[in-house]
Nucleic acid binder design. Structure first.
Lengths: 97, 97
DNA sequence: CTCATTGCTTTCCATGACGGAAAGAGTGCA
DNA sequence: TGCACTCTTTCCGTCATGGAAAGCAATGAG
C-alpha cells in the first residue's frame, strides 16, 4: 500500500529544488538564509528556485520583520508536501526502492 | 550503517539516465530496444544518453548479431553500479530516507 | 533627512543540456 | 546491387541554469 501515487515532478527534480524541498519537508518553516547556506547557493540562485516552487504552489514565502531585520521564511504548502511525497515515491520506484 | 557513501552524481540524475540506470541495476543486461521502449524515448535520445553513461564509465555497450539481427545490449559496469548506489543513497539522504 | 547596510529580487548574459527530425553508417538477406 | 533493420551522429531551435551586478524596500546611524 503506497501512501501517495508515485508521480515524477520536473519542478521538484532539479538538484537545488530537490534539496530545498527535502529541507522544508522536515520542518515547519525555515528562513531563507538558512536554506541558502544549507543548500550552498547564492542569494540570487535560491531566490530564483524558490520562485519556481512558489509559482508551482509548492512553497509559501512569508516576509516578516523580526528583531528589526527582514526575515523571509519558507514553508512547503500542503500541495507542496503532497507533490514532494509523490516525487520521492516515484524516485524510489525508479531506483528500485 | 550506510552501505555506500552517499554522493550526488550529475551524470546519473537527469530523468532519462536515472531510469536507464534503474532498469539496468535490476538486471544483468538489457537490450537497447527494451530500454528504449521502457523508458519511452526515441532511438536518438536513448543513444545520446547511453553515450553519456558510457563515457562516464557507467555503462558497457555490447553489440552482437543475434537471430540475424543486430542486437545492442546494455549493462552497468561495476563502477556504474557503485555510482548508482551512491547516488540513490544521496537521494535518500536528501529526501529524508 | 541622508546615507549606508541588510536581505532578498530582478535583469543581463553566456553556457550548456535536451529533444525532435533527418541524414548516416554497419550488417545481413534476397 | 538494393533493401531493411538498428542504432549513431548531426543539425537546429528552445529552455534551464548560474554568476554578476543592478534594483529595491526596510532599518538604523549620524
Amino acid at each position: 500500500m503506497t501512501a501517495v501515487a508515485p508521480r515524477f515532478d520536473a519542478v521538484i527534480h532539479p538538484p537545488p529544488r530537490l534539496q530545498v524541498c527535502g529541507l522544508l519537508a522536515a520542518v515547519d518553516t525555515m528562513d531563507f538564509a538558512a536554506v541558502r547556506d544549507t543548500v550552498g547557493v547564492s542569494d540570487s540562485v535560491l531566490s530564483k528556485h524558490v520562485k519556481q516552487l512558489e509559482e508551482a504552489g509548492y512553497v509559501r514565502v512569508r516576509k516578516a520583520t523580526r528583531a528589526s531585520r527582514l526575515r523571509t521564511s519558507l514553508a512547503l504548502t500542503e500541495q507542496g508536501r503532497a507533490a514532494f511525497a509523490a516525487h520521492v515515491a516515484e524516485l524510489r520506484r525508479i531506483t528500485g526502492g
